[in-house]
């Protein structure tokens, strides 16, 4: 999986800025995508490309249970969010709905990756290659169940 990074150097990026409350009534996924990250970055919609990754700090996706958050990001083209940690509902929504990969990284990786860097992520080897800087980092492996749900393509395709 290859893509370019959109980096937000901050912790606690909450679901209210990922997709603000007034849009919760919308269930047209492409329409939601037009408002992704609107509370934090008005330019997100114009700069995001299919296959991009978001990079952020601690507790990404904290706040509400709105599945609109991973949906709005996924339908904007985001394939993975790399963060120091994730809020629990965002994490399971991303995985169970098979919208995008929530990838936990360490401080060093977070500091070494810059905005617009090109990455190649290999979830089998748990490796992230920075093609721009010619560096390689480790990602935190998915736990057993999470790995199986991702491999199945979401909770509904997973057979316990």
């Amino acid at each position: 999986m290859k893509g370019d990074v959109i980096k937000y150097q901050r912790d606690n990026i909450d679901t209210d800025v990922i997709i603000p409350g007034p849009y919760l009534k919308i269930h047209d996924y492409n329409e939601l995508a037009k408002h992704a990250m609107e509370g934090l970055d008005k330019d997100f919609h114009s700069k995001v490309k299919e296959g991009d990754f978001i990079l952020a700090g601690r507790n990404f996706g904290c706040g509400s249970s709105r599945e609109h958050a991973p949906i709005a990001l996924a339908y904007s083209g985001i394939k993975a969010v790399l963060a120091l940690s994730f809020a629990r509902i965002f994490y399971r929504n991303a995985v169970d709905g098979a919208f995008l990969l929530p990838i936990e990284i360490d401080e060093n990786t977070y500091n070494n990756i810059s905005d617009k860097d090109s990455l190649e992520i290999d979830t089998e080897k748990n490796e992230i290659k920075n093609l721009t800087k010619n560096q390689t980092y480790k990602m935190k492996p998915f736990s057993d169940l999470i790995g199986k749900i991702i491999a199945a393509g979401g909770l509904f395709n997973y057979k316990p």
Binding site: N93, D96, G97, L155
Partner: peptide, 25 residues
Amino acid sequence: GDSHTNTTGALGAFAAGLGHTDVAY
């Protein structure tokens, strides 16, 4: 299907919020 589902734990229940794919499941 709401993050503040935790509220009801005050009655001695396990109460947790989920997204709508999980709730559908």
